[in-house]
Amino acid sequence: MPRYYFDIHDQEGDFRDEEGLDFPDLDAAIAVARKTLGGLVQDALREPGLETVAITVRDGQDGPVMMRVTLETNLPDQPPSR
């Protein structure tokens, strides 16, 4: 099974995955990345200020595949916040 690496950008900053995990294919790795993103977003939203959580899946051949969730908070009578 190929090994995939999951680099994460969250409220703690950027985390480069040096260990990786084995998955049957890129689709399986993406499915896990999506689930992980869900958990990361939940935690990121606990703190004000963070707008983007992202995971980049990479391996030797495929990718990289980047997945990103961006939150917009539009306050009334103010320009949209980033």
Partner: peptide, 16 residues
């Protein structure tokens, strides 16, 4: 109730 990828991230964070 998390993915192994998320746990790995959290362990790294606790280490840091």
């Amino acid at each position: 109730g998390l993915s192994a990828v998320h746990v790995n991230r959290v362990i790294q964070d606790l280490r840091a």
